[in-house]
């Protein structure tokens, strides 16, 4: 399926401008375990790994690359609190302040007394805000949007190949040798 023709085409369409200016080597791997070992070896030698593209989440890769943990769960918690306060404000304003109603002989005296009836709304809005705003954050932080050009330089990295982009420090051939030695199957 991956003919050379579609590959080069896709590569042209894929390349991202700022990355191109730094001299770097793109190494392709065909196995996630080999990739992990290579990442460790490359970093040990003091090279800087720009990016790794993989078809699926490789466990332990974020640690091997020294990535910081993501704070998106904290953001989701904040969004949840926002949803909860929205629900409280809304029920308070609409049911207690603006138009208090006597429903089933249970007049709306204070928000506290009516609160049990509002629990479902409070819960649903907490979830609604947390989930949707977190996903929006995920899209914005990753720069994902409909119509965005594919970020991976090689289309095989969504199938069965793993690509490491390493910045060239010193001799290019040393780096290429090291990558080959640690299991890269193709260099670009």
């Amino acid at each position: 399926m991956d003919t050379t023709n579609t590959q080069t085409e896709a590569q042209e369409a894929h390349v991202e401008e700022p990355v191109k200016e730094i001299p770097m080597v793109r190494a392709l791997f065909d196995d996630d375990d080999v990739l992990l070992k290579s990442v460790a070896a490359i970093r040990e030698k003091g090279y800087k790994i720009q990016e790794v593209f993989s078809p699926f989440p490789v466990h332990g890769l974020d640690h091997a690359l020294g990535l910081k943990g993501t704070r998106i769960a904290i953001a989701a918690f904040m969004y949840g609190l926002l949803g909860l306060s929205t629900a409280i404000t809304m029920t308070y304003y609409m049911m207690i302040v603006d138009w208090p109603m006597n429903i089933g002989g249970k007049p709306s005296m204070s928000w506290g007394e009516n609160m049990p009836a509002f629990v479902p709304i409070m819960f649903e809005l907490t979830v609604f805000f947390a989930a949707h705003l977190m996903v929006w954050t995920f899209f914005i932080r990753n720069g994902l949007y409909p119509g965005r050009k594919a970020m991976n330089p090689d289309p095989r990295t969504t199938d069965d190949m793993f690509m490491m982009e390493v910045e060239v420090l010193g001799d290019r051939e040393d780096l290429e040798g090291l990558l080959k030695e640690t299991g890269a199957v193709e260099l670009q």
Binding site: V52, N142, T158
Partner: peptide, 13 residues
């Protein structure tokens, strides 16, 4: 959405 499977993106994913 232009997904490319970057390491940081997978972590967030």
């Amino acid at each position: 959405f232009g997904w490319g499977g970057k390491a940081k993106h997978w972590q967030r994913f």
